[in-house]
Write a protein that binds this DNA or RNA. Structure first.
Lengths: 203, 203
DNA sequence: GTCGGTATCTGAACAATGCTCAGATTATGT
DNA sequence: ACATAATCTGAGCATTGTTCAGATACCGAC
């Protein structure tokens, strides 16, 4: 551990990149304690900086947590991309597995990061999403998957226009209800079966 | 305004029914400012009582808000019952209108009482619902409605076992996503159409 | 009735929190 | 080299959740 290296990371008075350091520490604390139980002072202290330093990078607490929420949104999209990438190929089986992975990874992320999930779908992040027109990455994953499924005859034409809404709302609702303890985790497979059946159309 | 009447309401030192007074005032403030921005002190002050008096009826803030959440749950069930009761009768049209009213009143309540809705589906009320096995009233409304729809041939037998899950999760998810500004209110009719179609089975 | 116990409420206090601001310290551009 | 801007500190203010000793009112037993 060289002295210069330490200097680059922490030049003493001026912290090299405080903004992102605060963000990642805030995210860490939110994940552990929940957004309601994280304090500006603790975030600052853990970075080794004065409490008031935070306010030179974020106007207030809500703003800090809002930015954390945006990052979580990106992390979630990446998580879903990776999950779906595990089933490549153009076969029917691959497309179906990708579709299920799309939904499964959603609730899996919610469960593994309950506090972060609640944050970025909470009041602190409202409005930001509107301006950025939803998080396009995750949304596009769903659209693409449904397009593939449609091309393979797995989505009935009459249902197709509403497919994204039906899929997203049900997966999102299930994720929240499981977090609330109102539904057992086992319903995820049931719901995915139900979704596939509904989209294709029962005979 | 007689003196005795005043005494009955506020006997001075002993407030007649502080417990419920605190609950309703807390609920009022949550509805206005959101659960995060309501303080014990303000609740107590608005009732005309010392801050510490609250702690003789509720162990802490989370407990108070948790009890408020339970009440909101009951209010919501009542709201749904009233909405569905507007379409009595055994006809197909009545049953369909009742089913749609069941879903529509859910999101309507969520929108009209955003802060209260967020409270009773938030971390503060988790676990309580498990013990009371969901709020049976609202759940039974859905089950009954789906039974009616099934008897009238509006729900495919293969879908029936998953119908409650599909309906609840999608309606709940939509309610939350609308609150978050991630979906426009117009999707409610789209989703209800989609749900009816999916449950019946497309041909 | 009155008297003791109990439920209820008060007032003061403590530690923690969000946030502000004047001033100290470092970086940056000319 | 120097001025200007960016960054950080330290002290401080108002508010919050919560505790606790003590004051006040109700309630049943004698």
């Amino acid at each position: 551990m060289s002295l210069t290296a330490e200097r680059v990371e922490k030049p003493g008075y001026h912290h090299g990149d405080l903004q992102s350091a605060l963000l990642s520490e805030a995210m860490r604390l939110v994940a552990i304690n929940g957004a309601d139980h994280v304090s500006m002072r603790e975030v600052a202290a853990n970075i080794g900086v004065s409490p008031s330093a935070v306010y030179h990078h974020f106007p207030d607490k809500d703003s800090l947590l809002g930015e954390v929420g945006k990052l979580v949104f990106e992390n979630m999209a990446t998580f879903q991309e990776n999950a779906m990438a595990q089933f490549p190929g153009k076969s029917l089986m691959a497309a179906r597995k990708r579709f299920r992975a799309c939904g499964y990874s959603y609730v899996e992320f919610a469960q593994s990061n309950a506090n972060l999930f609640r944050l970025c779908f909470g009041p602190l992040c409202v409005g930001d999403h509107e301006s950025t027109k939803n998080d396009n990455r995750a949304w596009n994953l769903l659209v693409t998957s449904l397009d593939e499924m449609t091309a393979l005859g797995q989505v009935h034409p009459k249902i197709r226009p509403m497919a994204e809404i039906l899929a997203w709302t049900s997966i999102h609702g299930m994720s929240m209800l499981i977090l609330d303890g109102l539904l057992p985790v086992e319903v995820v497979d049931v719901l995915l079966d139900s979704l596939e059946l509904s989209l294709k159309g029962v005979k």
